[in-house]
């Protein structure tokens, strides 16, 4: 699929380009308060949206994959107990896999 190839390449080069801009642009540009504030708010907004689509988006309509939801919930509980990133991740996939076997 041609367009997928193009986007894989553009995503890869674009990601590097953003990093290169960061170490090359004059500091005054990146230190602008509103620019910085937007930059700090983009990741939480994007991550929240990605979590939401991961949980309830079934190709453009609402659909919940219960083992996935339970797995992420188990990961969230692990996080409440200050588990490391790896532990959260393992708890989530193990919980999801076990439920997929049962259901």
């Amino acid at each position: 699929m041609m367009s997928l190839w193009i986007m894989v390449v553009l995503t890869s080069l674009g990601s590097y380009g953003l990093k290169l801009a960061g170490v090359s642009l004059p500091r005054s540009v990146l230190n602008h308060p509103r620019v910085q504030r937007t930059a700090y708010l983009l990741p939480p907004a994007m991550l929240a949206a990605l979590i939401m689509t991961g949980l309830v988006d079934a190709n453009g309509h609402y659909g919940v994959d219960w083992p996935v939801l339970a797995g992420v919930g188990a990961g969230a509980i692990a996080m409440r107990f200050k588990a490391s990133l790896v532990t959260v991740f393992i708890v989530a996939i193990v919980a999801c896999a076990v439920l997929q076997l049962i259901v």
């Binding site: 504030r37 700090y40 708010l41 990741p43 939480p44 991550l47 929240a48 990605l50 979590i51 991961g54 949980l55 994959d65 083992p67 996935v68 797995g71 992420v72 990961g75 969230a76 996080m79 990133l85 959260v88 991740f89 989530a92 996939i93 193990v94 919980a95 999801c96 896999a97 076990v98 997929q100």
Partner: peptide, 23 residues
């Protein structure tokens, strides 16, 4: 169980960022 991996990773990345002002 890998379908749960990506949202769980996003959640784990999001969590510590929520303490930022307005996040």
């Amino acid at each position: 169980g890998l379908s749960a991996a990506a949202p769980a990773i996003f959640l784990a990345l999001l969590w510590p960022q929520l303490s930022r002002d307005g996040a």
